[in-house]
Every structure is written in C-alpha cells, then in structure tokens.
C-alpha cells in the first residue's frame, strides 16, 4: 500500500518520485471533492492542527486553514504578533507548549531558513512532541514545498503531463523560496527549467543545479510553455539589486508590448501577491493565459492532500490505535 516516504513535509528535496505521484493523484481527488455541493470530508476529524505563522501571510494561511477545515480537523492559529515571542520564548519552547495541548500537526511559516528541519530534528526528544508532523509553509529563503506542489499541479491541469515541458521562473530568484522549491520539483518531474533574472538577483552557482540561465526575458518567453513571474521581495531587499521598479519592469517585467510580440503565448503563473506593473502587467494578470486564480484554488486541494497523507500516517505507522 503506497504512502509517503517522509514523516514531515519540510522541502521538496526529500520527496521521491513515488511521493510526488501520490501527492498529485491525491490532490486530483481532493480537487474533485471541492467541486461537490458538500466540500467537506470527515477524514481528519480526530486531528488537531496548529498553524504557526511567525511571518506574515494571507493566502497560504487561509489556504491551509480552509484545507484543514475541509478535512474536518480542529484548527488553532498562532501569529507572531501579540504572542509570547516578545517575552523571549524560543521557537522550540513555543512549539513544545502547543504540542503539549494534544496537537497532532504543525504548519510552520518562519523567516529562518531550516526552521522546520530544526524542529523535526529536536522534537522527537520530547514525549509530548515525538509524534507530531511538521509541514513547512515557507522557511525564509529556503523552501515553500506546498507552493511548488500547487504550481506543478496547476501546470499539469493546463499542460497535461509535465515531462519534457519547458517552464521559466522569472524575477527574484535570490530571495525566493518558491523558486528553489519549484526548481527542485519541476526537475524531478522531468521539466526543463529556465531561470530568467538580472545577475544581481541570481544566487551564485545556481547553474550547478542543471537549470538554464537567461538574462533576456524576450528570448526566454519564446522558448517556454509556461512562465512563473516571481514577486520582487521588497521586504528581503536590504541592498539595492536594481536601479528602479520602472527599469525592472522594462527589462524583466511581463508587459503588454513584450507579450504582443510573442507568437506562441505561454501560460502565466504567479505565486502572489502580485506587484501589478512591476513584475507583471495587471492586464496580463487578468488575461485568459493567466492561471493565477486557478493556482489559488488548486492550493486548497494540494494542501488537503498533504495533510491527509501525513495526518493518517502519524498514527498508522506507529501502531497506536485509538479505536
């Protein structure tokens, strides 16, 4: 009987091909459930899930919360503002306290890369926390696995099987956890990945990951089936990486002039929130080629699949039976 090979979803890196296939097929079934008049299933009715958001988020937090509620789990929410963090509590203490309240799964968003990996390493030492499952909802500039999974799912829905397809990630690769997770996942699925960005927004040595590098958006657009326009992460830009938003838009933004020159128009993805007029022209964000809102819809189904597969596993493979 198939099941995920990992106990937590900390990043794409640890997923096997079979894991990815299982996540995609389970997501498809949950996507079908979401089209029914009654969108709720009782699968995780005996689970409690804590959403710990140490960093701001709108769509990811709402998407996880909705996914949890659609699975009938009990949900508690935590955000850094107004918490005991300001009193100097450590991350490990905060999480252990929450898990001591009989919480089964943690959805973690944190500004430090590797925050989820740190918890997965240390929690087994604590009796109240050893069985907990952790889902990374974005850790600094490291990974954002559920975003990559929902992007891949959306691409599959639009393009069919992904092996051999060409997908470009455009923009702030340096600060983007979405870019890294996307790159890893799409490559595992047989996609030719191209990165298009100014040299100042590309991490050093990134070409070693086997991706094509481009500094010309016009050339990139002619080659690809889909283009994922990443957001300029102003909150992470502590030095000037490009002269001005206007200049960035002119050189690396997807604008109408550039779009109308294209003979074969790719589909457009964006992980949100969109800076209209910077990386993407608002008219294109709303155009027929844009699947940005489909991504949002698919996100709930994909997160349901992740929670469903890990939530069952948390007791199934430890031999603890409650009924």
């Amino acid at each position: 009987m198939p099941q995920l090979s990992c106990h937590h979803l900390l990043g794409i890196k640890a997923l096997t091909d079979a894991d990815i296939e299982l996540l995609m097929s389970t997501s498809a079934e949950f996507y079908n459930v979401l089209q029914r008049p009654i969108k709720k299933v009782p699968s995780l009715r005996d689970k409690t899930i804590a959403n710990l958001f140490f960093e701001n988020s709108t769509r990811t937090r709402l998407s996880f919360e909705l996914a949890e509620k659609r699975l009938s789990a009990d949900v508690i929410n935590f955000s850094a503002s107004g918490s005991s963090l300001s009193k100097g509590e450590t991350l490990l203490d905060t999480v252990n306290n929450i898990l001591a309240m009989k919480v089964d799964m943690i959805v973690l968003r944190h500004s430090s890369p590797g925050a989820g990996i740190f918890l997965a390493k240390h929690l087994p030492r604590f009796k109240h926390s050893a069985q907990a499952r952790i889902i990374n909802a974005g850790d600094g500039t490291h990974e954002h696995p559920t975003q990559a999974l929902l992007d891949a799912f959306s691409l599959q829905q639009s393009l069919g099987p992904l092996a051999g397809k060409k997908v470009a990630l455009v923009g702030d690769i340096l600060h983007s956890r979405v870019a890294l997770s996307n790159m890893l996942l799409l490559q595992k699925m047989g996609v030719h990945v191209e990165l298009c960005a100014p040299p100042s927004l590309l991490p050093k040595g990134i070409e070693k990951l086997g991706v094509r590098i481009s500094h010309s958006l016009d050339q990139t657009l002619q080659r690809v089936d889909a283009v994922n326009m990443l957001r300029i992460q102003e909150e992470r830009l502590n030095v000037q990486h490009f002269p001005s938003a206007y200049e960035y838009h002119r050189l690396f933004g997807l604008n109408m002039e550039r779009w109308e020159r294209l003979q074969h128009k790719p589909i457009i993805l964006h992980p949100g929130p969109v800076n209209r007029g910077v990386e993407l022209d608002g008219r294109l964000a709303d155009s027929a080629n844009s699947i940005i809102l489909d991504q949002v819809q698919h996100g709930v189904a994909v997160r349901m699949a992740v929670l469903y597969l890990l939530g069952q596993q948390s007791t199934a493979d430890t031999g603890i039976h409650f009924n």
Partner: peptide, 21 residues
Amino acid sequence: LDPTFYRDDFNQSKVLIPEAT
C-alpha cells in the same frame, strides 16, 4: 464512487489512498 475519504478506519493499520470518483 470512491468512499475512501468517508471511511471509519483511519489510523488503523494502513494509509488509505483514494481512487477516482
């Protein structure tokens, strides 16, 4: 119809994987 999501034997011996509805 696939009834997997509505089963009462979650967390028993194996992970239940859905099939298509």
